[in-house]
Computed example of a mutant assay.
Amino acid sequence: MNRADASSALRVCVVEDDDDLREEIVLLLERAGFEVRGVADAAAFYKAHVLAPCEVAVLDIGLRGEDGLSIASALRASGPIGIVMASARGAVEDRIDALRHGADVYMVKPLHIEELVATIHALGRRVRAMMPPAASPLPAPPMALEAPGAWHLSEGGWVLRDPQGLQLKLTTTERAFVACLMEADGEAVSRELVIRSIDRDARDFDPKRLDVIASRLRRKAEQAGMRLPLYAVRREGFQLVRSARPPILIESD
């Protein structure tokens, strides 16, 4: 989107796993003049967002699977976007946690639609002012990463495929993690470089999250019938072996 599009309807995505509440919010926001999509979980949001990026996301914290805080962290690292966090919890600690994860605004349920509409308008104006011409909130990893007969990324980097053709859908964080290792073409990548690929502002990134991400990827791959050649490398970082080759000195996992 460039600045000439400023008069078009703001694109909003509502991520809420309560079907009735989600449909109600979507309907009321559409009546307010926004272009709105509603989805139930993180996976559906990421898929919709890469196809048609939204400018403001309204996120429920307590989603099944990946929660709203994780989505907010991923979005904040991806580019200009407005993030409204919604939760039934109203403690100061909850608000602070949401803001630290990248939320612009924290709203306590039940939501007041007039306040939500005004908030989205304000965030949308700010996001459009920050957006450079032809910017893309979620740039795709280089598609040179695709290679027949080896592990590779496809569908804009959102799907990891093994040499046998099995596939694994990735979250935003997993996508950045895997793309960084893919670009190294089988060589070990330092933890610092992997962190920067996930979060441009790495000062508040907990390095222990990398091990959590790696373990989650291995577990998801195993559940999909895939044997993911992802290794923690001693005194280095991580290594993803794309084709048949032995890993270098690895840590026990």
Rank of each mutant, 00 (worst) to 15 (best):
F238M: 10
L153S: 10
R245L: 11
A98H: 04
M143P: 06
R161D: 07
S154C: 11
M130T: 04
E23I: 00
L111H: 01
D60E: 14
L75V: 08
A48C: 14
A6Q: 09
E35P: 00
Q223T: 05
I25K: 03
K220D: 02
V12Q: 07
L230R: 05
L168C: 12
Y106V: 03
D17A: 08
A32E: 11
V159N: 05
R203F: 00
P207I: 06
A147K: 09
V241M: 15
G157S: 11
L168R: 02
P207F: 05
T119I: 08
L217S: 05
A4E: 14
D201H: 13
D17T: 06
R191E: 13
G65K: 04
E55F: 01
V241I: 13
L138V: 12
P133V: 05
V159C: 12
K47F: 01
V50I: 12
A140D: 15
R235V: 02
L59I: 10
D20I: 13
R219G: 02
E183V: 03
R100D: 15
A176C: 12
R242A: 15
G157C: 09
E183M: 10
A4F: 05
H112R: 15
F177D: 08
S190N: 04
E114R: 12
G149N: 06
L228T: 02
A176Y: 02
A221I: 01
A48H: 06
L21K: 07
A44T: 10
L240K: 01
R209S: 13
K109Y: 00
R218L: 00
V92I: 14
L160Q: 03
R200Y: 02
A91Q: 14
L10N: 07
L217P: 05
W158E: 06
D5M: 04
V117S: 10
K47N: 09
R126D: 15
S136K: 07
G79Y: 03
R11L: 09
H101N: 15
G62W: 01
Y106I: 04
G156N: 12
D162V: 02
P163L: 04
A144L: 09
L249G: 13
L28F: 01
M1Q: 08
F34W: 04
F34Y: 05
R37T: 06
H121R: 15
R31E: 13
T172Y: 02
P142L: 06
A40S: 14
M131Y: 00
R37N: 10
I81D: 00
M1K: 04
V233A: 08
E192S: 12
A9M: 11
G68H: 04
E114S: 14
A129W: 00
A74H: 01
L193C: 02
D199A: 15
L123R: 08
L29P: 06
A214E: 11
A135K: 03
V194I: 14
Y106E: 04
Y46I: 13
D206P: 03
D201R: 14
S136E: 14
T171G: 10
I71A: 11
P132D: 15
F34A: 07
P163K: 05
E155F: 01
G157H: 03
A214I: 03
K208Q: 09
D97Y: 00
K169T: 05
G186A: 08
D19G: 09
P148D: 14
L111R: 01
L193V: 08
P246N: 11
